[in-house]
């Protein structure tokens, strides 16, 4: 079971990942417990569940299909099949822009050295790959203290936002 880091701390994990049925067909939504289910299953059976439900997005899915479902979901997970496949970062930003405020969890090939970027894109929970040392992973959040560009975490801005005083005139004009 992968270690979970949530809100920058090691956290207990009540969620289980529902794998697709062996025959490739749809399973039923479980009636109790906290389950992360594939998007297709959610879309087919969305009305019939009892416990808390989260949806797993593959990085080829369009997050906009969940726009109407936010109030029915307790979690959205995005799978990283390989950490070098960066589609999940854009999906996270889109979900946050759409107004998703609940837990946004990165699952799959989730490694220490990407946690800083993932956080800035809107992920707040990380199911680490099995071989990752969770204590080492926690140090990732402090990799940088003053990012240049705006992101989901609303970090520092370019130029004057970090030096709000009136800038000195320069001989070099961009105008």
């Amino acid at each position: 079971m992968a270690t979970l880091i949530k809100n920058k701390r090691i956290a207990p994990d009540s969620w289980q990942l529902l794998s697709p049925a062996v025959d490739g067909g749809l399973s039923e939504l479980p009636q109790s417990g906290d389950w992360i289910v594939p998007l297709t299953l959610w879309q087919a059976k969305r009305a019939a569940h009892g416990g808390r439900i989260g949806v797993l997005l593959e990085n080829t899915d369009d997050p906009r299909v969940l726009a109407e479902d936010f109030d029915k979901l307790a979690l959205i997970a995005v799978r990283f099949p390989k950490f070098t496949d960066g589609r999940g970062y854009s999906i996270a930003r889109l979900l946050r822009r759409m107004g998703w405020q609940g837990e946004l969890r990165a699952v799959g090939d989730v490694l220490r050295d990407q946690l800083f970027y993932m956080t800035r894109c809107g992920f707040d929970a990380f199911a680490l790959r099995d071989d990752q040392d969770p204590q080492v992973a926690l140090s990732a959040f402090g990799d940088f203290t003053a990012p240049y560009q705006a992101a989901v975490d609303d970090g520092a801005r370019l130029g004057s936002a970090r030096a709000p005083s009136k800038p000195a005139a320069s001989a070099l004009s961009p105008w």
Binding site: T84, G86, Y89, Y117, C121, P147, Y148, Q149, L158
Partner: peptide
């Protein structure tokens, strides 16, 4: 401006 914006851009590293 572009150097600062693109440096450690969290979404476009991969």
């Amino acid at each position: 401006v572009l150097r600062q914006w693109s440096t450690f851009h969290p979404e476009f590293a991969f």
